[in-house]
Amino acid sequence: MQTAYYLVLVPMVYAAFAVFVLGTVWRLVQTARRPAHPTTLQIFPKKEPAWLYAVGDTFLMPSIFRHSPVLWFFLAVFHVAVLLLIIGHLELFGDWPIFQLVPHEVFLGRGFVGLVAAVSVLYLFFRRFHAPVRDLSVPEDYYLLILLFLTIIFGSQMDWARRWYDYDVMGVSAYRAYLWSLVMLKPFVPDEILYSGHAFMLVLHVFFANLFLMVFPFTKMMHTFLALPMNLLRRG
């Protein structure tokens, strides 16, 4: 069993990051090298400065707010939660004074960020069973949400266990030791992690996250990087 854990926690993590980084860069470069569209693609009336409006379109999603406020709410909550979770993971590598402007224990939000993220993913998922979005959805849309949900749930479990059930075998210091060993290319998994009763949660979390990272460059997840350039085209 420990061998399987090790495979997920070490080689698969390296593979996932390699596929994610190289795949994303490759796809973006490949697309950027294609010829530009010969004419403008903007929508009028034009507002100046166009780039600022494009940034606003990308990060505030005003058109969704106008046409589908409930969806906007869950999307906004979801994306902000994911951002906070990413910050939380960065903090697993060390202390970042900038993130400690709001003093907190790692992870931010006392476990509620993960909960909120999971609930909004469920909303996005069940929304797809409802016409007309059901008619638009393809399996990809469900798979990605399931993958996200599993990643978030198993990840949050560990946070919840520590905060809400006083579970303290696996702590931040163990994660730091593990993650830094990966970065330094001297991988090693501390015994607290490998032999703890909750190890399976971490392993499942990492497993699903690995899968997610590996499909990322080849799916609609690329909207993360393409949203801004596309909005720039529309704003002219």
Binding site: A36, H37, S63, L71, V133, K220, L226, P229, M230, L233
Partner: peptide
């Protein structure tokens, strides 16, 4: 380039 953006990105959000 623009066409590939349009082909790759739709999240089928239904907006």
């Amino acid at each position: 380039r623009a066409m590939v953006y349009y082909l790759e990105t739709c999240t089928r959000c239904g907006v």
